[in-house]
Amino acid sequence: MTQSGEPVIRVNDLKKHYGDVKAVDGVTFEVARGEVFGMLGPNGAGKTTTIEVLEGLRSPDSGTVEVFGLDVCKHPGSIKQRIGVQLQSVSLYPRLTVTELIDLFGSFFDHHVPTKQLIDAVDLGERAKAYSMNLSGGQQQRLSIALALVNDPDLVFLDEPTTGLDPQARRSLWDLVKGLQEKGKSVMLTTHYMEEAAELCDRVAIMDHGRILEMGTVPELIGRRFKERAVFFDTSPKLPSEKLAQLGGVTRASQEDGQTLLYSKDVPATIGALLAMADELDFQPHNLGIRQATLEDVFLDLTGRALRD
């Protein structure tokens, strides 16, 4: 990560309310040049609202929002020349071909990348003459990215670029994003997949109910809360929480969706105590496993619920 010079995005105490709904409720962050910055949060957290304010599509209620050091409310035109936008819902003219759409969008900008080059970059060569409505979900998403790159932008916004895609299509999109980073572009993306945030982002902001709860690199976020490792197993009836918390080495325990999580400083001691307890209470700890704490754990710890509710 190269953090040189002015940040490309600077947001200070941004608020946007819809009636009683505080979609974005005082958000502050910066994105450095060349950085891939992720907003991780469940549906309704306010990710889209934040990103669309930055894109100049919605006006903020209060706070300052700068892109390339320019106020987005005052200089929407010159900012739009230099950013690439992918909206959350894929939205294209259904009866134009891939080539035609890229040509059309290119014509909106002062400078644009040759169409052929873009089509190759997103690997749509074989579908260049297909109508956008006949593309698969993953192909549509790649076309959408091609359109976001049509002006060779310095900063790219991707709003949930992989939601609804199968694992293979998701992988190929991840490769595209990594390619952008290698070219030195700044990227701001939103996601509600923690693996995605962990895989792609230099820094992550965890967002819920219109607020940023925590921000930092993924190891920072995990390390700040978890020195422990997690012992997990399936339980159908809930176990008494006090007893779980008293098991050897356990610092915190939680039960969610039929799964029990024990954060432990001393995994062998914890497992021994657990098996003794299983004997005593007569239950089977199915699918018992051990892992490092993840962003998911961070989210659970921050909000008391799993990310994918």
Binding site: L57, K80, V85, L87, S91, L92, Y93, F109, L147
Partner: peptide
């Protein structure tokens, strides 16, 4: 249709 699909919005994110 173009509004519902967000095509108009997508155009709004370009300098057009």
């Amino acid at each position: 249709q173009q509004r519902e699909k967000g095509i108009l919005k997508r155009m709004g994110a370009t300098p057009l």
